[in-house]
């Protein structure tokens, strides 16, 4: 999931009695599956939590371009290169849809970007891992986008209208991403021994970080309850992680690769696989800024923002001059 550990801007779920009349009416609308729209009244905590969550989601789309951008100039064929450019362009679009959704809550895009660049807002932990070989483009599309889809499909039903509509657009485009990733994996896994080894290496490195994308286990997930009552989080972290594992294991078998988790076993009783937890200490360390690429990723964003300043200013100055000229005529 692209938004991890979003801190809910409240202390636990309010009971019906603790709510004001306005809050009760608001919760009633959510319970009746009505969409909340920008001009509707909403509790401050709902607004603040959504800004954090949508902002983090948007930042993830933008920072998520970097690990893939790394391979645009090194794609093995012109066709692969064109496909990768199209995918990275989609991610920019997804970031835009999400920033716009956040802006309807009364925050500006520049404010959100400043928060990211100052290190006060986060993006998904997954993008702090490096993409070391071409097969990683396959693994990212297949596993990382696959995990993101798992989270984003239910979010199409989220209570906040603009967020829900952004998710509908994102999901429509995202399945191209996952399929192109799996197509790369198929090519690599059925190639010569060296290619198959690269595919296996990618899977080994991306398996546990992909499981981390869903956030900490439910028992340690302190912010979920209120967000679920507000329907800005639809499933628990463990539910989605289980679904992801169950979907992915048969695909690994299809590719003829081996899951790096050797403890994987089918559990008939629960109708799903038992799997090993990722190293949660590593996860918290990456979130804190100590992953392999945190500094590089943020530095790239800061550089892009600063190097682009003259373009932003220049185009605005030109637009103002043109408008003044038209007004004078």
């Amino acid at each position: 999931m692209y938004a991890q550990m979003v801190k809910t801007a409240s202390n636990g779920v309010k009971s019906h009695d603790e709510m004001s009349d306005k809050e009760r009416a608001f919760q009633g609308r959510i319970d009746a599956d009505e969409k909340i729209e920008p001009k509707d009244w909403m509790p401050d905590d709902y607004r603040r939590t959504l800004i954090r969550q949508i902002g983090q989601h948007a930042h993830s789309e933008i920072v998520g371009q970097l690990p893939e951008g790394n391979w645009i100039t090194r794609a093995p064929t012109l066709e692969r290169k064109a496909i990768l450019i199209a995918k990275v362009q989609d991610e920019a679009g997804h970031g835009l849809y999400l920033y716009c959704a956040a802006e309807t809550l009364g925050v500006s895009r520049d404010e959100l970007i400043e928060e990211l660049l100052a290190g006060r807002m986060k993006y998904s932990s997954i993008f702090n891992y490096p993409t070391l070989n071409w097969s990683d483009m396959g693994a990212v599309g297949w596993l990382v986008d696959g995990a993101a889809i798992m989270n984003q499909v239910p979010l199409q039903r989220t209570s906040y209208g603009p967020y829900s509509r952004a998710m509908v657009r994102v999901c429509r485009e995202e399945s191209f991403h996952q399929r192109q990733g799996f197509a790369i994996m198929m090519k690599m896994a059925t190639g010569v021994a060296a290619q198959k080894a690269m595919a296996q290496d990618s899977l080994n490195r991306f398996w546990y970080p992909s499981l981390m994308m869903f956030g900490p286990p439910d028992a340690d997930s302190v912010h979920s309850e209120q967000s679920m009552a507000w329907k800005i989080k639809i499933n628990t972290n463990d539910e989605l992680r289980q679904k992801f594992v169950d979907q992915t294991i048969p695909q690994i078998e299809y590719l003829g690769l081996e899951c790096p988790d050797k403890t994987i076993t089918w559990n008939d009783e629960k109708g799903g696989y038992d799997y090993a937890q990722p190293d949660w200490n590593e996860f918290f360390d990456v979130i804190k800024g100590n992953g392999p690429c945190n500094k590089e990723r943020l530095a790239a964003r800061v550089k892009a923002w600063e190097d682009g300043e003259w373009v932003r200013d220049g185009l605005l100055a030109h637009a103002k001059k043109k408008a003044a000229r038209v007004a004078a005529e």
Binding site: C100, R165, L315, H318
Partner: peptide
């Protein structure tokens, strides 16, 4: 279909072409 930022109408149309009509 959505929104975007642009310095003027002409650029807004170009950006909209890139963001909202890719398919």
């Amino acid at each position: 279909v959505g929104s975007l930022h642009a310095p003027d109408g002409e650029m807004a149309i170009k950006n909209a072409r890139d963001v909202y009509t890719r398919r």
